[in-house]
Design a protein around this nucleic acid. Structure first.
Lengths: 202, 202
DNA sequence: CAAAACTACTGAACAGTGTTCATTTTCCAA
DNA sequence: TTGGAAAATGAACACTGTTCAGTAGTTTTG
């Protein structure tokens, strides 16, 4: 049994080794430079070996994608200390946007790229679902205080997520250049302010 | 002179031929299947020939990207018949969203992909700028009627664009699957309704 | 302990990618 | 008709993801 256990653990360690290498290349040189051969070279194994631990390249990115969600969920942890529902919603938005600003590549991988989405249906979005459920719950809490009365939480959550994602996606994909006079982060900050203002008046 | 003219015209025709082939492969099989060799085969020329008309592959996608903007601007034409500024803003949003729904791949190319953005600075976004200016003008018209009082048009336009883009981007990149119970187009429609509702109360 | 079985790993091979460039073909004016 | 310019070619280069026959190392069995 102990042998099987060690094997199991070694398998896990190897996966982690591959993921570490992949993450570091991905964050340093971007998605397209993160090739199987580059990863293999970094961990000093042959390219074929990687396929003994991941079915295909996108599997690696799916794993990193999940890691991204774990990071985001971790950032959201502090929300439990914000008692007022609407304040919690605002804080949630701020955390979401800061995450995109500080983890551009992870955000891209999680919410924009197709690569990690080409998976079997199972646990495709387990982590994403958790975050979304979190948002829906905050909205329901808001509704309990009389805010957002009459709105369907499904659609309202989609709209709020979209508004935040829109700013983050324009940021990640360099469309903020459409405002050459403005700093991208300023646009996001001011955009967020307007959004909050708007939700307030709702 | 006539010979030079013809040469010029033939050059233009060849570019158009390449773009037609590229567009048809792009719309049928997606970005990654649109390879130089596939395009070359379709127009029955060798791969090298394409480089006599486009400096690099992304040049082709930049051209298609601009074509997308011309299509969108064409759709926006009808807006001139909507006299009320706020109604015009709403109509603009509807047109924008319908464009994304009906031209998913073009929308992706225009607002999400990096490919056509890797260009020299010149005329990178000439068409995009025009659309954005259009939005800003509509917002200024709204302000002239007392709506959106006190908001900076720069930031307000960014926020409004972001909200619309967010829904369209989640749609294009299959993140609407986060709502397995809902049809993606329903989400967009309902999301847009909430957005309008919100702008109304602003 | 030796042989057989199993596992981990390799790296060449396949089919594809964007891009370049010496060579050939085509065109047109003198 | 000929010579020079313009246009087109396709092989070559350096990559990509992925597969798989073969090898090396470890474990189990006789």
């Amino acid at each position: 049994m102990t042998v099987a256990n060690r094997k199991q653990r070694e398998k896990e360690e190897m996966r982690e080794l591959i993921l570490d290498a992949s993450r570091s290349i991905f964050l340093e040189k971007g998605y397209h430079q993160t090739s199987i051969r580059n990863i293999a070279e970094k961990i000093e194994y042959s390219p074929g070996t990687i396929y003994l631990y991941f079915k295909e390249k996108d599997d690696i990115f799916h794993a990193l994608h999940e890691e991204g969600f774990r990071r985001l969920v971790a950032q959201m942890e502090t929300l439990q200390f914000v008692s007022d529902p609407f304040e919690r919603l605002k804080a949630m938005g701020r955390i979401y946007m800061d995450f995109a600003k500080n983890n551009k590549d992870f955000y891209d991988l999680m919410f924009i790229m197709q690569a990690p989405m080409n998976m079997e249906e199972r646990d495709k979005w387990e982590m994403g679902d958790r975050t979304l459920d979190h948002l829906k719950n905050v909205l329901r809490d808001c509704q309990a205080t009389g805010k957002f009365k009459g709105y369907d939480v499904e659609y309202l959550s989609f709209f709020i997520w979209s508004s935040m994602h829109g700013m983050c996606a324009l940021y990640c994909r360099d469309r903020c250049n459409a405002y050459p006079e403005e700093e991208a982060t300023t646009l996001m900050h001011k955009g967020f302010e307007i959004f909050i203002d708007m939700l307030d008046k709702m």
